[in-house]
């Protein structure tokens, strides 16, 4: 699918009704999304067992986590399989493939990062859901078997990531190179889509991803040259601004963010901190902002927006479930968890 001929997302009045089948399915699946009441119940659960019982009563999700060992790796695996199977279901539809392409790419690029890191750490491949890509083949290519067939996009990603890792001798170089390739595909999606909402959403997503990258580089006090591994030209964050966000003093960062028009994603507006918890809070605000862009379109009867919105909402739900279930497993305080969870799609 990744290398197939481009079919722009069709949103013209006559084409919008063709999303009817997908929207019918999405409406049923939406009953399995978290809502504020359920999330609150999960957060108030006394322990992991009680949280597990609450999840077991949620449509679809209950089945996903049924008979899964109550430990973080097993929960993560089950949730990842669930999300991937939903993405594949939607991709199976003629128009759905293009709607789900962002999530397919997101999944493939994150698996690729994991695979490269495991290879460098000489760890086993582990279990990855089968999809469009043959991960064993990719794994062999990473190990140096260059004759293995790997789609051009991933071949390019692997080669560049390995090259930059050797140059910088830093595992983060792999993250940045692969993120840049992923973001370049997201920008391509923004150019192809006919939906003005999705076009803007993709652009904002890229801007947020660059900001996250810039602040992480800043936190780790890496050089500006290192930051070039992730930067790519985009409509919101210019290269000069990007560099300034990395190198300027903390008090200037707020001003620069205001110049770009993105100061609303900074926690404690007016005070920027080079602190991992501050960045985690900022990432939460970014997720909430991206969700809020999609929320007004959730009840549209036609068009790609409700399908895309559902997939993103599911993605956020999985983050929330991981936060809560892991938190309960490690007996974290309810208030700490409450600070971390994202908003729900349906309020």
């Amino acid at each position: 699918m990744i290398d197939s001929a481009v079919t722009p997302l069709q949103t013209g009045a006559s084409k919008n009704t063709e999303y009817g089948y997908l929207i019918g399915r999405v409406r049923v699946w939406e009953s399995g999304l978290l809502n504020p009441r359920l999330l609150d119940q999960l957060l108030r659960a006394d322990n992991a067992d009680q949280a597990g019982r609450i999840v077991s009563e949620i449509p679809q999700l209950g089945e996903v986590l049924q008979n899964v060992a109550q430990n973080p790796p097993s929960i993560d695996q089950a949730l990842m399989n669930h999300f991937w199977s939903l993405t594949e279901e939607i991709s199976g539809h003629r128009l759905g493939a293009k709607v789900a392409e962002f999530f397919t790419l997101l999944f493939h690029f994150s698996q690729l990062k994991l695979l490269l890191k495991r290879h460098l750490a000489q760890k086993p491949l582990g279990s990855i859901p089968e999809g469009v890509l043959d991960w064993n083949r990719i794994s062999r290519y990473i190990s140096g078997e260059k004759e293995e067939y790997v789609p051009d996009l991933f071949r390019q990603a692997i080669d560049q990531a390995k090259l930059q890792y050797e140059k910088w001798n830093n595992i983060q170089a792999i993250e940045l190179v692969i993120d840049r390739l992923f973001l370049s595909r997201v920008l391509k999606l923004s150019r192809e889509t006919e939906s003005s909402l999705l076009k803007n959403w993709f652009i904002v997503y890229v801007a947020f991803a660059l900001l996250r990258g810039a602040f992480r580089i800043r936190l780790q006090q890496r050089s500006l040259d290192f930051s070039q591994l992730i930067y790519l030209a985009n409509p919101m964050v210019r290269e000069d601004d990007f560099k300034e966000l990395i190198s300027a003093p903390a008090d200037k960062v707020v001003e620069k963010m205001a110049d770009i028009g993105l100061s609303s994603v900074l926690p404690d507006q007016g005070v920027f901190q080079d602190d991992p918890y501050y960045l985690a809070t900022m990432e939460k605000i970014m997720d909430n902002y991206l969700l809020s862009m999609l929320r007004p379109y959730q009840l549209n009867a036609f068009g790609p927006e409700p399908v895309f919105g559902f997939l993103f909402a599911k993605n956020i739900d999985i983050k929330n479930l991981r936060i809560v279930l892991h938190g309960k497993y490690f007996e974290m305080d309810e208030r700490d968890l409450r600070d971390k969870v994202r908003e729900c799609y349906y309020e």
Partner: peptide
């Protein structure tokens, strides 16, 4: 046809 497409989607899941 329009209603049927959405209906088929609903019935696929339920």
């Amino acid at each position: 046809g329009i209603a049927g497409e959405t209906g088929a989607g609903v019935m696929t899941e339920d």
